[in-house]
Design a protein around this nucleic acid. Sequence first.
DNA 1: GCCTCGATTGACT
DNA 2: GTCAATCGAGGCA
Length: 183
Amino acid sequence: MRLKRGFYSRNTETVAKELLGKVLVNGMCKGKIVETEAYFGPNDPASHAFGKVTKRNIIMFQKPGIAYVYFTYGNHWMFNVVTEKKGVPGAVLIRALEPLEGIKIMKMRRNKIKDLTNGPGKLTQALGIDRSFNGKDLTNGSLFIENSREKPRILTTTRIGINRGKDMPLRFYIKNSVFVSRK
DNA sequence: GCCTCGATTGACT
DNA sequence: GTCAATCGAGGCA
């Protein structure tokens, strides 16, 4: 069962924690979400939505349950899920997956047999997510997130790779998972 | 128009 | 552990 809009239309931190253990699907490829980060708006200096609305960050202000995909460091796509009610900015960065299905395809896309999805740029490559998915509705289409009954043990840390808002504990990952990008 | 730098990765010492 | 690759968005003029 894919997650419905109501799941995403809540506090960003809550959604980030509850996404752990759920399953990200794009076509043939599936992976369990094992690591996420929450990004807010005006109160979060690390967020793209800190400050004014721009062509890039406007996706974060739109309806919950759509994809926010952006390009960084000259070669990497980042996949986020938009949260909060329409008009309120928020997104959850998916940082790592545990590969479940379509692993052969992931290996082909990554041109590797290991480290397929243990980082935000790696998992987008493995699942074939790029610019064309920006703004796509996850409640309707080939890219979506499946519910699960799993209630994982969650660890919380500060976010990775940012320069501002470094002290905010908004990174979450599943305890003992070997598929996270870092411990 | 020009300049800076990034929610990263992979190669190398 | 260090560091280069690589390009578009965003800020400023």
